[in-house]
Every structure is written in C-alpha cells, then in structure tokens.
C-alpha cells in the first residue's frame, strides 16, 4: 500500500515544520523571560555593589548614623538622613494626592455626567505623561516663589514645594486607577443601595468605595511607589544637602536625589563613593518592595467578591 505522492511529501516536511515551530516558540520564550533576567540583574548589581560597600561600612552604622557625608574625609554613612528626606517629601505628596485623587475618582465615577467623564478621563491620562523634569522646573520656579510669598521664611530649596508638586503629579494616577476600580463595581450593587433610598454620596462612600477597595488600594500603592522613587522634582527643587529632618520647610536630599548628585559628579568606578549609590538604590528598592508587599496583603484581605 503506497501513499499518494503529495501526502507522503507533506508528511516528510512535517519534521521540519515542527522544528521551526519549536525554534520560534523558544525565541518568544526568551523574549518573555528577559523580564526575569532584568529583575535578576537589578538584584545582582544592587546587591554585589552593596556587599562591597558593607565591607567598609558596618550595617549598624548605615542604619543608625545620623550623618550622611560619604565624600568627606570624616565620612559618615547614615542612610536615615536620606530616608527622612524621601519619607517627608512622600508624605507631603501623598497627603495631597490620596484625598484629591480619591475625591476626583468618586466624583467622576458616581457624580459627573458621562460628558464630563469622557472629557476628564483622557485629560487625566494625558497629565500622567508629563515629564517629571518639567514638574521639577515648575516646583522650583513657580510654586516655591508662591509659597515663599505665603511663608516668607521658606528657603529657596525645600521639601514642601517639591512634595506638593509631586502630589499634583501623582493625582492623575491615583484618580484614574481608583475610578477604574469603582466603575468595575457591578451596577446591581449600586442599584441595591439606591433602592434603599440612599443618596449618591451614601452609595459612593458606603457601598461603592468598600466594594472597590482592593483596586483603590492598588492605586494608592502605585502612588506611594511613584512618590518614593521620584527623582527629578526633588533633585531640582528640594536642594541636595543631606539633612536629617522631619520638617518639610527645610531643604534635604532624598535617596534618589543623592544618586543624581553623585552621578553628576565624576566618581571613579569602584570607589566607596560609587558604591554608596548602589547601597542607596538597594534601600530604595527595599522600601518600594515593602509597600508592594503591604499592598498585596491588603488586596488579598479585601479581595473583590461581588
């Protein structure tokens, strides 16, 4: 029994085809796994340079010293100095962005007409794309002068102005993501509340917001990540002097602006000064990671189950 020629020929090419399909799949897999390699590379670079750094500086000094003067003869490496700047500016930013973003989200999702929403949503997305260096310019040369007119004692570089502008920058992110989460709440839940005679605000605050909590928490966490990792606004407007302070009216360096400051100079590869920016970067990553894990736990706790 012989197969027709055409069929046997097709079967013969089958091997080649399977091979080619496998090769393509492998290439695509490589592209996808690049993200894993990126993460590994980030961890490797940060940790290996930090290990070299911690050979010179005990971890306990790094965490407890109250001075950060890595380039002085009398060098001190107290990371809390930079962490304080990062936290203060982030708190100022979030104190503005979280309430404002949430209110805008509730307004757009539950109160506004579809027309306003259709207009405001793309606009918010557009604002989220403005380069941060532009916000930095705005903080230093527009907001700080206004704040100085209100508070004459305010120095030209300060965490307050940088933090406020950072907050304005984060508002679209928080608002847009929270609004998405609220719109995803089923209409039946909303109608259930209205059918009980609730007003819009009661429905929004007592039913929609709790139901969308997991998505709103994700928006907050992203906002926190952006605030903690924000660089240029602080490098431009907050001054880059290391300063252990909890007062937003003072100038201070943050983890990120310190890295920029060092990178702008000319530190030799392998020097202790060079290694400090990796130790600072590692600290930044750990802080971000901490918030991400916290967010993950919150979301698991209040998972949507409507």
């Amino acid at each position: 029994m012989t197969l027709p020629a055409a069929i046997s020929k097709r079967l013969a090419t089958r091997r080649g085809r399977v091979l080619r399909e496998c090769a393509i799949e492998f290439m695509l897999f490589l592209a996808a796994s690049l993200s894993v390699f990126t993460t590994l590379a980030i961890v490797y670079i940060l940790v290996s340079e930090s290990v070299a750094f911690f050979r010179h500086v005990p971890v306990i000094d790094f965490l407890t010293d109250t001075q950060w003067t890595p380039l002085f003869d009398d060098a001190h490496f107290g990371i809390m100095v930079l962490v304080s700047g990062t936290l203060v500016s982030s708190i100022v930013a979030l104190a503005l962005a979280v309430p404002m973003g949430t209110i805008i989200a509730i307004y757009l999702s539950e109160f506004s007409t579809p027309g306003i929403r259709e207009f405001a949503k793309p606009l918010l997305e557009l604002l989220a794309g403005i380069p941060t260096i532009v916000y930095g310019y705005f903080a230093l040369l527009f907001v700080t002068p206004i704040l100085q007119w209100l508070i004459p004692s305010l120095p030209g570089f300060n965490l307050l102005s940088a933090g406020l502008v950072m907050g304005i920058m984060i508002v679209p992110t928080v608002a847009s993501l929270s609004e998405d989460a609220m719109r995803a709440v089923p209409a039946a839940l909303r109608e259930g509340s209205y059918a009980m005679g609730a007003t819009r605000l009661q429905t929004a605050l007592k039913v929609v917001t709790p139901a969308a909590f997991s998505g709103i928490a994700a928006a907050y966490i992203l906002g926190i990540s952006r605030a903690v990792g924000e660089t240029m606004i602080l490098a431009v407007a907050a001054g880059m002097q290391p300063n252990l302070t909890w007062n937003p009216m003072e100038p201070a360096a943050t983890i990120t602006s310190y890295i920029v400051q060092v990178a702008l100079g000319d530190l030799p590869h392998g020097s202790i000064g060079y290694q400090t920016i990796f130790a600072a970067g590692l600290t930044l990553m750990l802080i971000t990671l901490m918030f991400n894990i916290l967010g993950h736990m919150l979301r698991r706790r209040y998972r949507e189950s409507y």
Binding site: P186, A188, L189, E191, A195, T199, K206, V207, F213, Y306
Partner: peptide
C-alpha cells in the same frame, strides 16, 4: 425619588448584599 425608595423596597434578580 429618594423618598419613594424609602417607602418602597426592592429585591433584585441576583442577590446583591453590600460588602459589609
């Protein structure tokens, strides 16, 4: 309409308890 809804209750097709 809010006053109307306070006087008249409604039960929906799918149970829709609030997240409380």
């Amino acid at each position: 309409p809010i006053e109307v809804r306070m006087r008249i209750g409604m039960v929906f097709q799918k149970p829709n308890p609030f997240p409380k």
